[in-house]
Amino acid sequence: MKVSLFITCLCDIFSTNVGKDTVEILERVGCEVDFPELQTCCGQPAYNSGYLKDSKEAMKQMMRAFRDSEYVVGPSGSCVGMLREYPEVFAGDPDWEEPAKELAAKSYELTQFLVDVIGVVDIGSTFKGRVTYHPSCHMTRILGVKDAPKALLQQVKGVELVELPIAEDCCGFGGTFAVKHAAISEQMVSEKSQHVSETNAEFLVGGDMGCLLNIGGRMAREGKKVEVMHITGILNYRQ
């Protein structure tokens, strides 16, 4: 199966290991991975801030980049969720409505792709540790992926998965929200950090780097020792 990696700008520039792990995971389950270099950012920072025109420039670039791809898979519920909304954004646009529909139809978040398309929950990983999982809002509510990440984590040998209290609550990231309303965002992330502490987990795991940078950044500031990892870091681990 041919898969084009949608790296997401955060993982291209900041959390590059997520991309590396994603490539290796996809190859492990038998995919042939390519990386279309024309890709940039999904458009969400501008779209969610109300800059529709500016966001469309980014979206068009993504449609150009993945035009020939069979499947597009990315390690982010939020960014893939944005790709899936392209058809609504370009509804009625004679040039872009069709490409938008095509891209949305072939785009998947990584765990969703593994479970729903490849049909695998155990990819033979081993990772020792007490792990709690933060289900990011866009992964669950926008993209509708609720079970796949946990199903995969449960199959990793050595993982002790503990429930995060009020897990469905937003961590306060919200893209530009974290900067525009930093004071409110701070209260939200502090509460999330508190909930993580209550689990006594050694690792906080999630499927969206934005949220993880937010929670991880807060916990580091608070001097907490919990290690924050993208789910790909665990799924690609074999001790």
């Binding site: 024309l38 940039t40 950012c41 501008a46 025109k53 420039e57 980014a58 068009k60 670039q61």
Partner: peptide, 8 residues
């Protein structure tokens, strides 16, 4: 942002 994201 628009310029950045539309130019590889």
């Amino acid at each position: 942002y628009a310029k950045w994201a539309s130019s590889p």
